[in-house]
């Protein structure tokens, strides 16, 4: 299966762009209405629970984006179809922003909940490492002047990072049981009420729409960059 991007596809993406932007804004407004006004405050955490509606989707998409990134890098090495490289490069920066957002909102949520800005548990630590992996992928690509080479090298790095993430998660779990037995206050996850599930669901869709919109914009950007490199060479 060899998909080749032609001008028709780009025109299609271009024409879909305004609708996508509109849909993203619309769903975000609905999501905001539900998460800030409509949903009740949590009976343990109070109104600080509302941070969850942006924190959880961004954490999900941070991980999902990295999986797509690493997956398309693997597929690129197998099939040699340059489309996968373009996908990887267009999605990486969105993933980095989501990772950063989940770290920031997470620590703002952590202050009222745990009383501290940061807890060294496996989930947060591996998220932090994920952020560094995104930085490494993006900046290594920029640092190498031969761009064809840069794509291959940074793709190899993305795959190695994907292997590293579960190792980190496992080792931090081990380390926590080793150093501070059971003293760690993890996120208590009580069964979520349906009234909280609705805003979370809407916000997830909104974040997904944002991911798609910006990825498609970056997709066009990366294609033009590639074309410009071609004409310069």
């Amino acid at each position: 299966m060899y998909i080749k991007i032609n001008n028709n596809h780009i025109e299609l993406i271009k024409s879909a762009n305004p609708y996508l932007i509109f849909a993203t804004i619309f769903v975000f407004i609905i999501g905001l209405y539900y998460s800030l006004f409509q949903s009740p405050p949590d009976y343990i955490q109070g109104d600080s629970m509302r941070i969850m509606y942006i924190h959880v989707p961004s954490a999900w998409f941070a991980l999902m984006t990295y999986s797509i990134l690493a997956g398309s890098c693997v597929l690129w090495f197998i099939t040699r179809n340059p489309l996968f490289n373009v996908v990887a490069r267009s999605i990486a920066q969105v993933g980095m922003v989501f990772t950063l957002m989940s770290l920031i909102t997470g620590s703002i949520w952590g202050k009222p909940t745990w009383g501290v800005w940061w807890v060294w548990d496996a989930r947060l630590t591996s998220m932090l490492i994920l952020f560094f992996l995104y930085i490494a992928y993006i900046f290594l690509w920029q640092a190498i002047s031969n761009k064809e080479l840069a794509s291959k090298i940074s793709a190899a790095l993305a795959i190695i990072g994907f292997i590293n993430i579960p190792i980190i998660k496992f080792s931090v779990d081990w380390w926590n049981t080793l150093h501070q037995p059971a003293s760690i206050s993890k996120l208590s996850t009580p069964s979520i009420d349906i009234s909280m599930l609705i805003p979370l669901f809407i916000m997830t869709i909104a974040c997904f729409l944002f991911l798609v919109t910006v990825s498609l914009i970056r997709f066009r950007l990366v294609l033009i960059e590639n074309k410009m490199l071609r004409t310069i060479n």
Binding site: L36, P41, G46, S48, I51, S58, Q93, I108, W109, F210
Partner: peptide, 23 residues
């Protein structure tokens, strides 16, 4: 926000501000 105003509003503010800037 039930006493959590600074946390909730600042996190929402940072989130949407960054998303818009990035876009």
């Amino acid at each position: 926000m039930g006493g959590y105003a600074i946390f909730v509003w600042s996190s929402y503010g940072i989130f949407f501000f960054s998303l818009v800037i990035f876009f």
